[in-house]
């Protein structure tokens, strides 16, 4: 079965979702990510969903879960690249993902992760 690759860049993990997510894939991504966070002691997780054409409540819940679980594991999660049509639909669906940090693209996502980690170190 195919899996979504998780890349490590410095102390961040980068996941770029390029395929149509089916439920099993979402669940295995969740499992793999938490394992990798612990293994690599990553401080940040970035999930690029710019290629996703839809985010339904199942995938929305997965994003939420990843954010919550990484928080417990002392890592910040940033979701980047959500398409406008997807964002409009998610809001209409009633999912505003309040616990998930977002950024426009990968560059800004990395900058946001840095800032969040530094803020934590500073406080």
């Amino acid at each position: 079965m195919d899996q979504i690759p998780i890349m490590k860049i410095g102390d961040c993990l980068l996941v770029s979702i390029q395929v149509d997510m089916h439920d099993q894939l979402a669940i295995s991504l969740q499992d793999n990510l938490t394992t990798r966070i612990v293994q690599t002691r990553a401080r940040g997780v970035m999930i690029d969903i710019s290629a996703l054409e839809i985010v339904d409540s199942f995938i929305g819940r997965m994003l939420n879960n990843i954010a919550s679980m990484s928080r417990v594991l002392d890592a910040v999660t940033v979701v980047v690249g959500m398409q406008p049509a997807v964002a409009i639909t998610l809001v209409e669906l009633g999912l505003t993902l309040p616990g998930v940090r977002t950024a426009l693209d990968v560059d800004r996502g990395l900058a946001l992760i840095r800032r969040l980690i530094d803020d934590e170190a500073g406080s």
Binding site: E53, V55, D56, Q83, P84, V86, I88, T89
Partner: peptide
């Protein structure tokens, strides 16, 4: 946007 809405609704109900 309309495509995305109906596809998302279909995904929800199918599940």
């Amino acid at each position: 946007v309309d495509q995305t809405k109906i596809v998302t609704a279909a995904s929800e109900i199918a599940r």
